[in-house]
Write a protein that binds this DNA or RNA. Structure first.
Lengths: 332, 332
DNA sequence: TTGTATGCGTTATCAA
DNA sequence: TTGATAACGCATACAA
């Protein structure tokens, strides 16, 4: 158990004051090059690593970010979290994942993370009508909404263009000759699913198709409600020939429901999902889907947050909209 | 932007010294009940939260744990991480997830986490023949191996009884009348897959079946190698009627390969996986599998680690083996 | 049982 | 351009 080497040890070794070492560490510009070199030598020689704890006690900033999600075991979030963690680390930050289980009030979560001294928070779990978070935290911690955003907000956000995504899905289906297209939405409290729903409605009209309320499931999509819905619409005289599901996970349940009703995918019914989670590319599933471009989305939100934290006087765009991408596989 | 309320503010408000407040915070036993009450009142009144940073600068302990995984987007790890996070929080700890991408040397990772001042580390990514980690870190940080363990180690570990798991799988298949059972292993560098492989071999012999080398895939299981293997064995005269896959993810690819060869699951070929990841219960997949009892596994490893951190006196079991659980669904 | 004083390892302030 | 010195918020040895 070695003793920790501190800035003082380095100072002594280099023959300068601790303050000078600190300045070298923080890239303070006005240091005699020779002294700077001596200090750097000492740092290498002694294998010195600055103590982040001591550092943040005084700067009031930590090199850690909070990431708030509904459910980390949801593939969309686990896959984006992975990206978040690795990209954050590249910029010298760690990330503390906070999983609300879709239950906890965001207000508490933010206060909690604030007490944990995170320097910034990425929120992936906000509802459309959540109360405003602008003034919510005692200390002024930057917040970036990720993937979902509230209807009205002054905070920064990075989301996918979900309306456009639905339109792409329908465009693809129309091109394949479909005109009766059903839609299974997620919970309408989430901006993502709501926008996908809006986009669906708009596109149906734009393409001159008939908007049929009975082809839309707005209920909370459980395994059961999905099965029921699919059975019902497929048994109508004028049944849909394609089904759009608001998430890949729903779509996979739809696949099962369709085959239970003795229809083939894609011959009888085409199915399309959203998110491009990794299991969707499994050959057994091979689901056509709209991808979020997770990589881009993570990168931009992270850059936004870190810029906000480090405040480079930069011009930071308030609301970034990522274009969706159609990934065609075997279900359409 | 309120000013942070500190221990001094509380002291002033309660009419005591900062030291006394500190003592109350740390449950120091010899305090006059009335003073203690005053302090607690002040704490509530001022909404005081102790600054963990300042605290850990002195105690050299942080309330954060490191969790090292291969790939957090792998469902097994994202599901266990979720449990880890919530259970850790219940005990007042946060968790920093370190994703090695299956690449980085564990030694570097541990040193990195040590520099981040985590109080303990759960390692879920160790290989069978990794070098010893006992003496690896400068400061003495407790380590617990989770799910996988090295062949030889003096450190603590919590793993599933993987041999027994394979035997359960085979027992189940034998009971269903199967006697030709193929096995697709994962990478043999991992103790989990290796033990499952050993268990398979032992059980085949114990049940008086024939151990057929050509029914075993030991190669790194890629989508392609799995497809090839399945096609080959299913086209042999004496083809297997059941396939055990070392993970659910492999099993799902097997499902596809089987149907591509125009065989039905489970009528012609039974398939069984390991891990019970959440997608396996999707009705479209409905995979029979051996569950790890993640909840138990996480709980025990977390308790072990925190006991190691907090309680020097306790008798802590060195290597805990969790019994597997068979979950029968539609693929067998 | 309690208060005073000191120190944890840095950065910030000020004077030189 | 550099060095003393004082914070940061708390825990703890020591004194009382």
């Amino acid at each position: 158990m070695k003793k920790r080497v501190t800035i003082k040890d380095v100072a002594k070794y280099a023959g300068v004051s601790p303050a000078t070492v600190s300045r070298v560490l923080n890239n303070y510009p006005f240091i005699k090059p020779e002294k700077k070199m001596k200090v750097e030598e000492a740092i290498n020689e002694l294998n010195f690593e600055p103590n982040e704890i001591a550092r943040s006690l005084i700067t009031k900033k930590t090199k850690t970010l909070g990431l708030v999600v509904d459910d980390i075991s949801n593939p969309f979030f686990s896959e984006t979290s992975k990206l978040m963690i690795s990209k954050a680390r590249q910029r010298g930050y760690e990330v503390l994942i906070y999983d609300t289980n879709g239950e906890e009030e965001l207000k508490h979560t933010l206060q909690f993370l604030s007490n944990k001294n995170v320097s910034g928070i990425i929120v992936g779990s906000v509802l459309r009508f959540d109360q405003k978070h602008e003034e919510m935290i005692d200390e002024k911690i930057p917040i970036v909404y990720f993937n979902r955003k509230p209807e009205e907000t002054d905070l920064f956000s990075v989301t996918m263009d979900n309306k456009k995504a639905s339109k792409m899905a329908i465009g693809h289906l129309v091109q394949k000759g479909h005109s009766k297209i059903a839609f299974i939405g997620g919970m309408m409290e989430y901006s993502t699913y709501y926008s996908r729903y809006l986009g669906y409605c708009e596109a149906i009209i734009e393409f001159g198709l008939e908007l049929n309320e009975s082809f839309i499931l707005k209920e909370r999509p459980t395994s059961e409600s999905i099965q029921n819905f699919v059975s019902r619409v497929l048994n109508e005289d004028d049944r849909p020939t394609a089904i759009i599901a608001a998430t890949d996970q729903i779509a996979i349940t739809v696949l099962d429901a369709v085959s239970k009703n003795n229809y083939q995918v894609p011959a009888d019914v085409a199915v399309i999902g959203f998110d491009n989670i990794s299991i969707s590319s499994n050959p057994y599933i091979s689901l056509t889907t709209i991808s979020q471009q997770k990589n881009k989305m993570v990168e931009i939100s992270l850059n936004t947050l870190i810029d906000l934290i480090e405040d480079e006087e930069k011009e930071i765009p308030k609301h970034v909209l990522i274009p969706p991408k159609l990934i065609i596989r075997k279900t359409t």
